[in-house]
Design a protein around this nucleic acid. Structure first.
Lengths: 153, 153
DNA sequence: CAAATTTATATCGTTCACGATGCAAAAGTA
DNA sequence: TACTTTTGCATCGTGAACGATATAAATTTG
């Protein structure tokens, strides 16, 4: 079986890729009414935890590149969720802060994590094994992140 | 802690999303020389396993929508990897088949899965716990897929 | 202090991903 | 057989994701 490994069935990455897409899809019923996308929801969670952050910090916390986050923030600014102001000590920075609308959305989003986890329990009849995946995923993420930032030089 | 669950740290989906992106990134050093992307690699794996499939079958095996796969295949056709011919019994179908170039690429790609799994082992110093994630991810994928196809009516 | 380098962000081009819509062929129905 | 519905694929528009590149401000260096 020379090509046995080249089968979809045997591949972890394909499963991660698919699981991530479908899980993001599961957020649709909750995010559509708020008029936001999943990546925008991630940005909001970062800002709800700590308001007024430069683009770089947000990107770093989401493991995204700034050239992904910048247009994302521009769309969110157009939607009235955030403001982007020039930094005071460092004028190269853009400090991103929540608008009233962005702050208030936290209240509406409060129950989303619980809803999602309930859905996953209902779908899979098992929560424990997903909680158990978390440390493994973290290890993978940290390792890949380190590896890939090293590769850039 | 009213908003405790609205923290990135507590979310499985964010980890899946990030792990999937970074893992796809880990394929870059192997796929760039072949001139293909990760989703194109997935399509090739589907066709290597069984040549001459309609668009719908490919999309279904990858858990993607046909309106994602169609442009993907068009790009792959332009790159000379696949041919798309009209179906004979059902002329609505487009049968996708590998070209010589597409077939030959299998030989060059043969070692990619092994390389990737070696990298993950090296990065995380542990393979077992990732292998253990596979059934959980499959359960999640199957459950979400069923749920989301039901939701469409 | 001037020049070179680094840093923070933005812009551009390409590829996904997918909802909405369109269209022609096939299948089901009156 | 005519009509309706379904199916298979394509097109369009929007929003990511990211490599490459640009630009201005800060930092380092000579």
């Amino acid at each position: 079986m020379e090509y046995e490994q080249l089968k979809l069935d045997n591949q972890l990455c394909f499963r991660l890729y698919t699981a991530a897409r479908l899980t993001m899809g599961a957020y649709h019923p909750y995010l559509d009414p708020l008029g936001i996308t999943y990546p925008q929801y991630l940005v909001l969670m970062v800002l709800w935890e700590q308001d007024k952050q430069p683009v770089n910090d947000i990107a770093h916390k989401l493991f995204l590149e700034t050239n992904t986050v910048t247009p994302l923030l521009q769309r969110m600014e157009k939607a009235g969720l955030v403001k982007r102001t020039k930094g005071k000590e460092d004028t190269r920075q853009r400090i991103v802060s929540l608008t009233k609308k962005g702050i208030e959305m936290r209240e509406q989003a409060k129950h989303i994590p619980e809803c999602l986890s309930n859905e996953i329990i209902q779908i899979t009849r098992e929560e424990e094994e997903f909680v158990r995946m978390i440390p493994s995923l973290d290890k993978l993420i940290q390792g890949l992140k380190k590896q890939q930032t090293n590769q850039k030089h």
